[in-house]
């Protein structure tokens, strides 16, 4: 770490949020690996994309505000953008998977 000593009122919540965000993303990616069907796998990364990213971005807002000595809220842009876009990607993928399994182009899953 560089810069001035942060007050514990900033550092402790930020650390807790970072640990929570990291664990959520890791568990989500683990689900991507462990589920045996595509329709189950598509649910797993949503964890990291919503709450995991949200925790990390709030922590980033806290620490960069404390470092700069004024409220820094531009991480809010990434949060809003991610909240709007990651469901769109998921829905498009879901539609594509439904379409491909209906047209018999491939059998999604039942393979580990």
């Amino acid at each position: 770490m560089s810069g001035a000593e942060l007050s514990p009122w900033i550092a402790l919540p930020a650390a807790a949020l970072l640990i929570a965000g990291g664990l959520l993303s890791l568990v989500g990616a683990l689900g991507l690996l462990r589920f045996n069907h595509f329709f189950a796998r598509i649910h797993a990364p949503t964890m990291g994309n919503t709450l995991g990213a949200g925790c990390v971005l709030i922590a980033s807002m806290l620490t960069s505000s404390a470092v700069a000595g004024r409220p820094v809220i531009h991480e809010l842009l990434i949060t809003v953008f991610l909240l709007l876009t990651s469901p769109v990607t998921t829905m498009l993928l879901m539609r594509a998977a439904v379409f491909r399994s209906e047209s018999g182009r491939d059998q999604p899953g039942d393979t580990p």
Partner: peptide, 22 residues
């Protein structure tokens, strides 16, 4: 095994990469 699995994996990959940059 399917193409949609790979796209889902790429999506997860870029979001986690972005979070590590943050």
């Amino acid at each position: 095994p399917s193409a949609q699995d790979r796209i889902l994996a790429l999506d997860t990959l870029y979001i986690n990469g972005m979070l590590s940059i943050l």
